[in-house]
Design a protein around this nucleic acid. Structure first.
Lengths: 217, 217
DNA sequence: ATTTAAATTTAGACAAATCTAAAAATTTGT
DNA sequence: ACAAATTTTTAGATTTGTCTAAATTTAAAT
């Protein structure tokens, strides 16, 4: 598998190509910042390799083999992210682009040893679950902060947006995974929230609230 | 820099292109298992980028920029090898091919942090020196076992051949870096050596002796 | 000093991955 | 339902890195 092929498979998975639903070439092109015509070419190639089902003018969905492949890449990506944070003191906004490269390293032994070194972590630094060696993983029961009842509270367990800008914003306001967050009230006008975290009150916009996950149980 | 370009630069360095000497396209092609015509194409490209001097029909030699680039790649390769052995329990015959991939990861911070994690090692698992961040490194004073006086002794500090076959042979006979080796006698007929290592005597062929380095001081 | 042999380069072609522009199919709006 | 808008595909071109086969240059041998 080439690096380009792996990136297509991974993107299609993230767009929901594991479910039965068909992903359009346009959606893939937009996500990958490439042109729909390039996606069409690659779709044919990956269909030939039995990694996805391609229906002309309709879109693609991953085959079982494609899903397995995607999970293997995502597993590597997330394990490397944990490694960078836990062993090399990277911050959570620095890991993505390096992990994008490391996820393509071909060595089963390498990633299994990294897994072991990290003591088999279940979640990456952004709270996303890490698929096991055999490809299964439990998505945590979680809810966007913006969808929580008011008032209520929960533990921050993940972020939806993983851009450096957003993560740095969270650092600045001392919001991190594992922190208890209480929702005090919602401003009806702009859906901004008054929250309580680490003993302090903080006003956050709806845009922030729709990108923060809280544990539900 | 593409991966292919990096591999050319690294190979030319290892063939001696840092010295004033010119390396022939044939030599490069043979080392890289490619065709001389491909090397010619790449030589032009790298010369355009000021990474090497290319003289038609004569060969190439690295520029200062080319040497700096080569050292950076070699530094990464050797640091990753140390990482694999020290942190992930790889054996010294398993590290090369994985390091060949890892050496192309682009992140200054990553390799500096790996360096720090390993406590700034000076030599890789095969005894080869690791260039520092600013590109200088001290080649150890060493001698091939086959060129030592008889009798004499020294500490094993490196291997010339780093193939898995040779390294496994050494493991099998309990020869490792840091071990004291005494040369007892040389067989004039085939230049094989009787050596003493770890309290035991061992007969080794000239082919082995010409691939083992011993410290000189 | 020629001829022969070896090394090197050029020319033209190919596969991978991408692009642009034009054509075809699908979806949308009325 | 049919024209317009959108999406998707096709056709042809480009770049990178490679190859083969032919031409050229350099080195070796007599």
């Amino acid at each position: 598998m080439t690096r380009a092929e792996e990136n297509y498979i991974k993107t299609i998975f993230h767009l929901g190509g594991n479910q039965a639903q068909l992903i359009s070439t346009n959606a893939i092109a937009e996500q990958m910042e490439t042109k729909p015509s390039s996606v069409t070419d690659m779709a044919k190639k990956l269909a030939d390799k039995n990694l996805l089902n391609y229906i002309r003018y309709k879109g693609v969905s991953l085959t079982d083999l494609g899903i397995k492949t995607a999970l293997s890449i995502i597993r590597k990506h997330r394990l490397w992210e944990v490694f960078l944070v836990k062993k090399l003191d990277f911050t959570w906004d620095e890991v993505h682009e390096v992990a994008e490269q490391l996820e393509h390293i071909k060595s089963e032994k390498l990633i299994d040893k990294i897994d072991e070194l990290l003591d088999f972590p279940k979640y990456d630094p952004h709270g996303d679950p890490i698929p096991s060696k055999n490809g299964d993983f439990q998505e945590r029961d979680k809810q966007l902060l913006s969808e929580m009842p008011i008032p209520s509270s929960g533990v921050c367990v993940g972020v939806k947006d993983t851009s450096a800008a957003f993560l740095k914003f969270l650092d600045k306001h001392h919001i991190a995974l594992g922190h208890e967050i209480s929702i005090v009230e919602k401003e009806a006008f702009d859906d901004s929230l008054k929250i309580r975290i680490g003993g302090k009150e903080l006003q956050i916009s709806n845009q922030i609230a729709t990108n923060l996950y809280v544990k539900v149980e």
